[in-house]
Design a protein around this nucleic acid. Sequence first.
DNA 1: CTAGAACGAGCGAACGTTCGTCCACTACAC
DNA 2: GTGTAGTGGACGAACGTTCGCTCGTTCTAG
Lengths: 348, 348
Amino acid sequence: MKRSRPAKPVSVKDVAANSGVSFQTTSKVLNGKGSVSEQTRKRILSAATDLGYVPNILARSLVTRSTQAIGLVASNFSDPNLSRFIVGAEQEARRQGHAVIIASIEPDGTGGHRAVRALIERRVDGIVLADSPAEEDARYARLMKHQIPIVSLHDVPGGGLLTVGSDHVQTGLLATRHLTDLGHHRIGTITGPHRGRVAQSRLRGYRQALGEAGLADDLTLVEESDCQISGGFEATRRLLSRRPDLTAIFAQNDTMAIGVLSALDTLGKDVPEACAVVGCDDIEMAAYTRPPLTTVRVPFYETGEEAIRLLLRMIASGSSGVRGTLLPVQLIARASSGAGLSLFRPSK
Amino acid sequence: MKRSRPAKPVSVKDVAANSGVSFQTTSKVLNGKGSVSEQTRKRILSAATDLGYVPNILARSLVTRSTQAIGLVASNFSDPNLSRFIVGAEQEARRQGHAVIIASIEPDGTGGHRAVRALIERRVDGIVLADSPAEEDARYARLMKHQIPIVSLHDVPGGGLLTVGSDHVQTGLLATRHLTDLGHHRIGTITGPHRGRVAQSRLRGYRQALGEAGLADDLTLVEESDCQISGGFEATRRLLSRRPDLTAIFAQNDTMAIGVLSALDTLGKDVPEACAVVGCDDIEMAAYTRPPLTTVRVPFYETGEEAIRLLLRMIASGSSGVRGTLLPVQLIARASSGAGLSLFRPSK
DNA sequence: CTAGAACGAGCGAACGTTCGTCCACTACAC
DNA sequence: GTGTAGTGGACGAACGTTCGCTCGTTCTAG
């Protein structure tokens, strides 16, 4: 009745006062615990809806020592791959009744340390790390002593963190083998930054496929780039000025592959006739480039879901006995490799 | 000294015990308030770092009634435009010391109501709504009585919410006027879902430009779609089968424009010679399509920043006296309209 | 009839903070 | 010597919950 001006949100005590019971009993009813008579139950429940009661999760968390919230540190929310990962993670978290607090790092790759600390201050139950620069940041290790469950998309030095993801060696292998199977002998590749573990693994798969086909593994075939469209564009021009004889390019991610297609267009090279192109990741765009892009599907959405499942399992079990997962990848043949319209089937 | 097993996080009381003062004094030192002698100050500070003290923001929020967190409801985190908006919002929020809790809605567009409630349960200081289906959801109005500051990217019925964004009429106007300036007379358009306010405004701009140029405003020129690449693809085929005489298409967002380019390619129509294409939004991809896409730049990143600034201003001022903002848009001429390589300058 | 179970509800304590008030002391001018 | 500032720090209370214990009543079985 005598509310003060700033409309202080109604608490369980207000509900209790309105239904003539103790606030503890009210709490029990609202959580469906304890035994309460049907009559007072209804009285409390209707008082709660009348007053528009909304529980305060902060207060609850304080006593239960669980926030039902997980933190998500990501290097770049607008990267299409990471986006899919985040969507998968968020949806799985929601299904399991958890909120997601996001924390981004600086564009220059720093600040992951700060982000993790901010999340710990908010007492998240666990953290998902999708922060590639973290691979080089030793300060993460210091945070680990806080004993908070963490699942990471990348390896972190000294962390011993649980990782999720897909088999990147296999990814590079499938993409490159697809090209050797089609009879290509001079296959260049454009990688992400070499310091990244993912780039290293994909490169290893590329080399393995070359080896299987009895092809020489030549350093002039490899060009490093930055995972941006523009980076793929420029790397293609560098690569082709060094090796104009290439008949195929394996771009180690679809975003760069778009730059590759664009560069080949400006150079007057038809795809796939003059130069075949294979990408990686299978972003939505890949099916709509000109020509449509052959690529290896990496299940980022599912990886996000899996990250949350693992994390929640760690939380439930006290971080013990949970093993990381490696999700399978799959070749998607389209026109950019000259195989999309044929009866070509990837050799598993 | 006598810690129990599960490594309960160290609290301000632990720090106090380790430095021989009351925990309230410790709290003051840690927050730089009150007057404390330099000697005990140092003692407390070093005890805090020794013990690895991390403040519990939950407890703080409980008493200060402010979580320094804002909620972000988005319909689709992997949409490139929304991604940019979210990045802008997150970065601005972080700069101002606020965390961001994300909440997505169901793929079918429902659940915005549930998301907002979940955020209120977590007592966020304010909410940013980037949820287009909300425009039709009357239940949002019910939540408004909770008096939480909200800034929305879209109009919400009965909400009277503060909105941010850009001038969508102007967007449609600039894009279409660009085409009429180039001499096109038969200009089709592919819109987003008609129930959306954004689509309506852009369509109005389109019609206004046609009017300015003395062109008839024909219903057969308008095709509704779904903002997906595939939707743009199919809409183009429908549109051209009805009106094969079109010389230009204005796609009301870049994602659909990619589908338009792809469809024109399959139909054997050269862009821009046989059919010019103009998009909207200026996603990163737009500069790398074949041919590069003429579009209208919509400042989503800046809109995200502005949303947070407005929200924080509302929170600080008790929601009074804050006005929404409209950010300017800008034509980006590229090759898909046949103007990119010329000396063409957009009027205005 | 009575012992004990089962039920319904109350109550104190705790979670980790912040905030305002109060107290004890030192120091200084009168 | 007393009065008055000022300083350093203690302390109680509150924020909104959950949890476990206690206690009185009613029901049921012996």
